[in-house]
């Protein structure tokens, strides 16, 4: 069982590193976003290895299932093509990325070699922390105030975004109509 876990950890962490590099280096924005989805899924797998089932599933639902779909949605809608990338034509970027990747890989292999000998046993206590009951218990008793504050903060952020998007001038016209109107009038006058 332990060998399986180490194997799964190596596989998942290598995948996580590779997909995060893919996210940064890919020139197409859509491919970047898809790499990021894969990255989030591997992170969920790593959480599962730590017995944090609730966190793993919430990771998939919230990040991979909702937020990244919206990201992808916006990217596809705007049709962002082949972004001008700073490291587009420079070999230095690739070399730097390769070195960082190799460094990370070395770190992972090193820590694994260290762990393989005396990987700490997961105690019953540690396993109990990850369950839904345990998280709910703590979240709605000890950490109720931070939870509520975060909720209010997020709600006000959403309402603020709505306000900016729905902003209208005093005469009721949406903001971008006013901005473009003088140019249109000039063109009409010229013709």
């Amino acid at each position: 069982m332990l060998v399986m876990e180490i194997y799964a950890f190596i596989l998942l962490s290598l995948l996580a590193i590779a997909t995060s590099i893919g996210t940064v280096l890919n020139r197409s924005a859509v491919n970047s976003a898809l790499f990021m989805v894969l990255h989030l899924l591997t992170l969920a797998g790593l959480y599962l290895l730590l017995r944090a089932q609730f966190l793993a599933i919430i990771q998939v639902i919230v990040y991979a299932g909702a937020i990244m779909v919206l990201f992808l949605f916006v990217i596809m809608l705007l049709n962002v093509e082949e972004e001008e990338n700073i490291i587009k034509n420079t070999r230095f970027g690739f070399i730097g990325a390769f070195m960082v990747g190799a460094l990370l890989l070395g770190q992972v292999v090193y820590s694994l070699l260290g762990l393989a000998g005396f990987l700490p046993e997961l105690s019953g206590q540690a396993e109990a922390i990850g369950t839904v009951e345990a998280i709910g218990d703590v979240m709605f008793t000890d950490y109720l105030l931070p939870l509520q504050v975060t909720a209010i903060l997020l709600t006000s952020a959403v309402v603020g975004a709505m306000m900016i998007a729905e902003f209208t001038h005093a005469d009721g016209t949406p903001q971008d109509v006013i901005e473009h109107a003088p140019e249109d009038r000039v063109e009409e006058g010229g013709a």
Partner: peptide
């Protein structure tokens, strides 16, 4: 027999949309 199987169902359902979005793109 999974501890949070209902959440698992919702998570899987939320991933299904990728197939269609990617196909469209």
């Amino acid at each position: 027999d999974m501890n949070a199987s209902v959440l698992y169902l919702l998570a899987i359902a939320s991933l299904g949309v990728y197939g269609i979005t990617i196909a469209g793109w």
